[in-house]
Design a protein around this nucleic acid. Structure first.
Lengths: 346, 346
DNA sequence: ATGAAAGCGCTAACAG
DNA sequence: CTGTTAGCGCTTTCAT
């Protein structure tokens, strides 16, 4: 393994010169730069990351902390990761994914205090997230995906749930639907302070009220069975429902299954819109689902860019940005079928 | 940020003593160890990972290289990652996931040559995988998940596809099925040398032949549409089929959709078994799928254990191990319905 | 535009 | 059982 000294000797310059052609922190004449580059190539030189990190006090490694639960990573999260990785690489950083469970904050504290990460992007942030505290105390620059309850002083990028819900509701109302049920995550998830669930809940209530409609909302366990149960509950609460808006990738198939089990067809009898859903998942269903597609890879890219910008210029301030999901119309939405002859119910 | 010197001064010992209580590489009296530990606690000391790595020439970081494609990580892969992370942590290593695409081997070469990874676990290994060559040339210890074509000199842990297919076929044959179609990954995937697709293909042919049956095999694109097309092809090739064995999580929903589209019920008309499938995905379908569940977390744990064992004792040799998937019977398999009255076709 | 040299914080001989 | 000290390979003043 060639070291910088070897390169310097072969190129007949000092080690500092070699270092400077590498970092570009001071002008080097074209002639000597070429000599050095040639020597590096000849020796197949690779700088030692540890030595560089020790001397410069910057590892050039960024951490992406993601809670890995049993359900796995959906296409949405994956797009996020690949977007982040590409941005990091473009900025000259390595991105390492750390599957630190929300379980042990000590683990995280250790990682952060060992100066092995220059900065961190936090995924799946809770409204009250102790990881944020831990990292701030350790003095690690961080960017959130999602927001804590009071994120006013933090950098974050998040989905614009308000706008997303409004657009989804507008699509359904535009088709003529009046009885729309929102299927959210579970009551336990709501209670735990999961931001997306809470924000969409409020946004749905506001959007429906804005249209002069009654917002019916149901919580569903994250499973097919949960979806089935939720749909049953939905019909109990709103027998005339003609559309379901759901934000629960695990429950959506249960909802569809229960619908067809009741002899109801999508979209003729009931329209379905799935929120924060990847095209891949949307295409799994028959018919393919009209969905609000999350801006996964853009979120990842923007988060990393904000972080590296701050790292390379500490004067750079907090970055706060919301991105809406995009409405992609597929086969699961249509105008409602008239259940009863016009005026018959009067 | 307290350093080792600070700890040594406070504890009134030398830095080396502090270092040795940390590494445990030489005996320390209980008395001084306590002094040192107390000083560490008081200063909230955390060793600097870079300095330690530079001096010891070991980063204590393990890399898990996983290609992240658009489809995302299934529950299977996630279980694998969490199993690996737990094992690494137990062995005193950090595990970083690196989403290096198969795209740029230069990227990987750089990572490896910078001595930032003590060892590497490679996921989704192809039969001919240049990443293996790159890492071997860089002298990075590695363990494969999956196998290259000639893996005789390498360490690996993989699914026992032969055994898994045999068990799945035995289950169906045991129920009375004779016309079983195997839906594999796409022809392109086969051609690219994707081990699991090739090994299961051969295993299926062998298993069916062993039962005196005709092995009908169909390739399917990794999508719902691919699954639908595959099922159509299957009926064209084997009109009397009563069971489908599939190893394609993306196509399976298309297969089920097409089945119900043709008015065929599962499992009464056609039984379905999904291979290398997580319980989570199996439960998404209606009825829930009988599946061969992959030993995800065990694979991850064993791979990391083999790697750390080798790192801590270079004398330790290559580790090669196969683990079968477990048959989990759910609602998608049953005895075939008699299509024609007994003896009527003679 | 270049060189010399002092660390960065830790490990691991080498000495007792 | 403990202390002294020479690096690990690089960055970054300070000189010139």
């Amino acid at each position: 393994m060639a070291t910088m000294h070897d390169v310097a000797r072969l190129a007949q310059v000092s080690v500092s010169t070699v270092s400077y052609v590498l970092t570009g922190t001071r002008p080097i004449s074209q002639a000597t730069r070429n000599k050095v580059l040639a020597a590096m190539a000849e020796l197949d030189y690779q700088p030692n990351a540890m030595a560089r990190g020790l001397a410069s006090r910057r590892s050039r490694i960024l951490g992406l902390l993601m809670p890995m639960d049993e359900r796995g990573l959906g296409a949405t999260e994956t797009a996020f990761v690949t977007g982040a990785a590409a941005a990091a690489s473009a900025a000259g950083y390595h991105l390492v994914l750390s599957p630190v469970g929300g379980g042990d904050p000590g683990d995280l504290r250790r990682l952060a205090s060992q100066r092995m990460l220059d900065g961190v992007v936090l995924m799946e942030v809770q409204l009250a997230d102790e990881r944020v505290t831990v990292l701030q105390e350790a003095g690690v620059p961080l960017v959130l995906i999602g927001r804590t309850g009071d994120a006013s002083t933090l950098s974050y990028v998040d989905i614009d749930f308000d706008q997303t819900v409004r657009e989804a509701v507008a699509h359904l109302v535009g088709l003529g639907h009046r009885q729309i049920v929102y299927v959210n995550h579970s009551a336990a998830t709501l209670a735990s302070g999961y931001g997306p669930a809470l924000r969409t809940r409020d946004a749905f209530a506001a959007a429906m009220t804005g249209h002069g409609l009654d917002p019916v909302m149901i919580a569903a366990e994250d499973s097919a069975a949960g979806g089935r149960a939720a749909l049953a509950a939905a019909f109990a609460r709103a027998p005339e429902l003609t559309a379901v808006l759901a934000m629960n990738e695990s429950a959506i198939f249960g909802i569809l299954g229960e619908l067809s089990g009741r002899g109801l067809s999508v979209p003729d009898d009931v329209s379905v819109v799935s929120m924060v859903t990847s095209p891949q998942v949307a295409e799994l269903a028959t018919p393919a689902l009209t969905a609000m597609t999350s801006p996964g890879s853009a979120l990842g890219r923007i988060a990393i860019e904000a972080l590296t910008r701050h790292l390379d210029d500490p004067g750079d301030h907090r970055h706060q940005q919301l991105l809406p999901c995009a409405l992609e119309i597929r086969g699961s939405t249509a105008a409602p079928r008239r259940r009863q002859p016009m005026g018959a119910d009067q």
